[in-house]
Design a protein around this nucleic acid. Structure first.
Lengths: 146, 146
DNA sequence: TAGTCTACGGATAACCGTTATCCATAGTAA
DNA sequence: TTACTATGGATAACGGTTATCCGTAGACTA
């Protein structure tokens, strides 16, 4: 896994590559996205960036996130009953582990995803293109403190 | 898998069991839910039931679905960018296969879910309670007709 | 440096599926 | 018949996200 600074450089390079401007607001957002743990929501990023740029609009946060999403650099986790969350470290589809109590989201290291995907495809004749694998439960911290 | 009629009887019994009334609208909805393939949306059920009860409100559809959901008899599949879909045949969490073209949703028969769940739990220390496993792709029909 | 052009940021209205609210009434019980 | 309550229907409200509008910062040209 690359460190935060190099991940930020990657994101910045991708924007430049497509002739998008690196405005101060975007730079600040890229740094937040590259360094964030736990998969922040747009509202969370909005709260964080207001510390540096108090006049920033929530729309700017969404615009930047969608820009990175369209470039394939950010994975959007949509929830119908909660804020969307964003994964700026690993844009490829992968399983997530969601704590039902503190709403923290982790990326587990697993090996069986490809096997399960293949089983599903063979079972149904589907051409599987992507996936969204969410596990819900309690993180170790919340198991202790409940 | 039970046939549609017995599934309907199950649903009806569950409502009676909790002293909910079996109104004509609810009976019609229960039959639709028990017999539906491909995981209908609330709007889809609404269109269907209007053939029998033209004055039915969309709110009644949602109320009945939420009733069954709270009783654990219907599984709600929420999508942040699309209508929610409802599984009235298998209320327990299980993988789904979603066609990106015709939006059909299938229930694949797979054996590796428990293994993957266990791997995730051991890897992270999470107490895994539930899951939501969606695979996206093209169904056999849409592979041919594209 | 001045002028022009365009991408961008900020503010906010609009969107849309879902939920809440209100009221009339059907069904139940006494 | 009367009173009570759950239910259905209509629609307003909700809330996260997106679209729209406008002023401007920044880049390019000469």
């Amino acid at each position: 896994m690359p460190d935060n600074e190099s991940r930020f450089q990657q994101l910045a390079a991708r924007l430049k590559e497509h002739d998008y401007r690196l405005t101060p607001q975007r730079v600040a957002l890229l740094r937040l996205i590259a360094s964030s743990e736990g998969h922040p929501s747009a509202a969370h990023l909005y709260e964080q960036i207001k510390a540096q740029f108090p006049t920033t609009s929530l729309a700017t946060v969404y615009k930047t996130l969608n820009l990175l999403k369209d470039l394939g650099e950010v994975l959007e986790l949509g929830f119908s009953d909660d804020d969307n969350r964003y994964d700026g470290s690993r844009p490829d589809p992968h399983p997530h582990l969601i704590c039902m109590r503190c709403r923290k989201i982790l990326d587990p290291q697993v090996s069986l995803v490809d096997d399960l995907t293949q089983e599903v495809a063979e079972q149904t004749g589907f051409q599987v293109i992507s996936h969204r694998l969410d596990f819900y439960g309690l993180c170790p911290d919340c198991q202790q403190n409940q």
